[in-house]
Amino acid sequence: MSNPDGGVADTCCVTPPLLHEPLSESAAVEMSKKLKALADPVRLRLFSAIASHAGGEACVCDISGGIDVSQPTVSHHLKVLRDAGLLTSQRRASWVYYAVVPEALHGLSALLTLNTAAFAGVTA
């Protein structure tokens, strides 16, 4: 989420966008790319493995264990996550290391955070 200066807003102290006002078209397009990328179970597992890995980054060899798809398929899924703005990658010798983009996590978290007080007294 950006502030008026173009930087990333501190999402810990802002009202979740969905409760404050409707998303703009451009914000909805950007968020939908991220949500679509995470909607695949393999990509969600890879993303989670990277996010929870020590140091916040991981090599493909560190995260592909236990995921029953081929190495080219893992690479494809990581590319989708990178293209969606959820991961960065850096080549080191013959290995590629992936890291979660913190701003992407903060943006998703702010979008999906509900202020339960706003729904007090609302029944289904």
Score class of each variant (00 low, 15 high):
56 G>Q: 01
67 I>K: 00
53 H>A: 13
78 L>P: 00
51 A>S: 10
70 S>P: 01
61 C>G: 10
66 G>Y: 03
46 L>G: 02
48 S>K: 08
75 S>L: 15
51 A>F: 12
59 C>P: 03
72 P>G: 05
47 F>P: 01
74 V>R: 01
62 D>A: 06
52 S>R: 11
75 S>W: 12
67 I>W: 11
71 Q>I: 15
45 R>H: 10
73 T>L: 04
44 L>C: 12
56 G>I: 08
40 D>P: 04
70 S>H: 07
48 S>N: 10
46 L>A: 02
46 L>I: 03
40 D>M: 05
66 G>M: 04
69 V>C: 04
41 P>H: 09
63 I>L: 06
53 H>G: 02
79 K>Q: 08
50 I>W: 10
62 D>W: 07
56 G>K: 05
50 I>G: 01
60 V>N: 07
71 Q>Y: 14
43 R>F: 09
76 H>R: 15
53 H>S: 12
79 K>T: 08
47 F>L: 06
76 H>Q: 13
75 S>P: 02
53 H>D: 09
44 L>M: 15
40 D>R: 01
42 V>H: 02
59 C>T: 08
42 V>G: 02
76 H>W: 14
80 V>G: 02
52 S>N: 12
54 A>Y: 12
76 H>C: 07
69 V>Y: 03
67 I>T: 10
46 L>Q: 00
79 K>N: 05
40 D>Q: 07
72 P>I: 05
71 Q>C: 06
39 A>E: 11
65 G>F: 10
44 L>P: 00
77 H>L: 06
64 S>D: 14
58 A>I: 06
73 T>H: 08
76 H>Y: 15
59 C>H: 10
65 G>I: 09
71 Q>F: 14
75 S>C: 11
61 C>D: 14
54 A>S: 13
58 A>N: 03
42 V>I: 15
80 V>R: 04
49 A>F: 11
43 R>Y: 09
50 I>L: 11
50 I>E: 08
63 I>N: 05
43 R>S: 11
52 S>E: 13
58 A>W: 05
71 Q>N: 11
72 P>C: 03
69 V>I: 15
45 R>N: 12
63 I>T: 01
72 P>T: 00
59 C>W: 11
63 I>Y: 01
60 V>H: 05
55 G>Y: 06
68 D>Q: 14
41 P>D: 13
55 G>R: 00
70 S>A: 09
75 S>E: 14
59 C>A: 15
